[in-house]
Design a protein around this nucleic acid. Structure first.
Lengths: 235, 235
DNA sequence: CGATGCGTTGATAACTTTCAAATTTAGTGG
DNA sequence: CCACTAAATTTGAAAGTTATCAACGCATCG
């Protein structure tokens, strides 16, 4: 199953720090939501969250949209039986918190210490009404989320090896390290993202290493040794 | 794993029949994409497809958007290892074929004989540029798809029983038959939708029946006897 | 150094798939 | 309309995969 984290411990007093906002210092994303990003930068304030702090909870009003400046964020949902399903990981440059109803359907937490840019949803909506570019940006963002979700669906019907391989390829893709991946998240986070247990994730990584497809010099650092093999697993 | 359907047999010569288009004769959907539906009805032509006919293929240009008038449609993707993943089932009133890139990422087939309303994407896009209502409708449609996809993700990490229970509840919800469900699709379709094998689907239905949660008078007809039990399974 | 959290490894159990066959249903030709 | 063949569904037994339970190692931090 999934997780059991009754942690929610060293949470955070979010620190608001207003003015000076430099454009995302990290990997520019592939997209057509550029104007959106621009506008957000102009409109937003930055906030900092400590490791494991809750950024917003499930069922809270979705009044803001967030963009990661530094650090990493996970969204998740606690299922009725206590399992946790991780909705996604957000790295610098990524936008999260997008909702269509008035409430968040997933909660968001800081995986590491995090700085985010926060934009009032109403302000963005108002802008979208006047500015077709912003509207298009929002649409593009939504469409991209949908595509990710669909990719996720494909992924989740596959075997543990395939899921882990896909995850590694995705992370390598999104990170800027070429074949080297610095994982920001724990095995538990990965397991809850892939719908596996930590033991299975761990064993799968070990077996991929044995098969010479990857190196795992430290638990949070993974080097892809044979992308071809991983891609093949990936289906 | 999934499927093995080298059928694609009695396919179809799509029959175009133009003028008289009555509004969807079936269950009105819950939404904010009403204007969209209206416009589509005005702009579209109807087409008929025979059972198992391909409506569009994967990687074909996505020039049209479709609305089901009668019958049922499945979208799917064939994975590299031959398995089939069903993306979704579309019933009267449902819209499918929405894409963001220029090509379909899923193929669509008629499950039963089907009548669909077909709208040129470019025409709709042009309209959306002029008419904010249409644009909003498209956005709402996309957002709803995203929510469905997310629900699907939650579903796919659960056990076979939970998946089947969710599926039954979803179908009861979407159909107009109260607790009685007339399944339009085969066990194979269901299995490929839920990421299970037909044997597991069949066994699960049998065990739900044994547990008095459902009745299965015929293989395509299912009656929910105890929604509470199903919902509990559903997580 | 003794906690504590995180990750790995081992043994066993549970669940789902696979392979095979029986049974039922649907479709077709006479 | 009936008989017959093909397709779909169900059921059984065995194999495979992943989860669960438990122990251990390793690092970090007071």
């Amino acid at each position: 199953m999934l997780t059991q984290p009754p942690l929610r411990s060293d949470a955070a007093r979010p620190a608001i720090s207003h003015p000076p906002i430099s454009p995302s210092p990290v990997a520019p994303r592939h997209d057509a939501s550029e104007p959106l990003t621009q506008q957000m930068t102009l409109m937003g304030a930055t906030m900092s969250f400590a490791r494991n702090a809750e950024i917003f909870g499930e069922n809270e009003p979705a009044d803001y949209l967030y963009k990661v400046i530094s650090g990493a964020v996970r969204t998740y949902k606690i299922l009725s039986d206590g399992r946790r399903q991780v909705g996604g990981f957000y790295l610098p440059g990524d936008i999260f918190g997008l909702e269509f109803a008035g409430e968040h359907t997933l909660a968001a937490e800081a995986i590491t210490n995090v700085k985010v840019l926060v934009i009032k949803r109403s302000a963005l909506a108002a802008l979208a009404d006047r500015d077709a570019g912003t509207a298009r940006g929002l649409y593009a963002l939504t469409a991209r989320e949908l595509q990710r979700a669909q990719a996720r669906i494909i992924l989740l019907v596959k075997s543990a090896q395939e899921r882990v391989a896909s995850f590694l390829l995705e992370m390598a893709e999104r990170g800027a390290g070429g074949n080297a991946i610095e994982l920001q998240m724990s095995r538990q986070d990965i397991a809850d993202y892939l719908g596996l247990t930590i033991e299975t994730v761990s064993r799968t990584l070990t077996s991929l290493e044995t098969a010479a497809a990857i190196d795992v010099p430290t638990s949070r650092r993974i080097v892809l040794r044979n992308r071809g093999a991983l891609s093949r697993l990936n289906g």
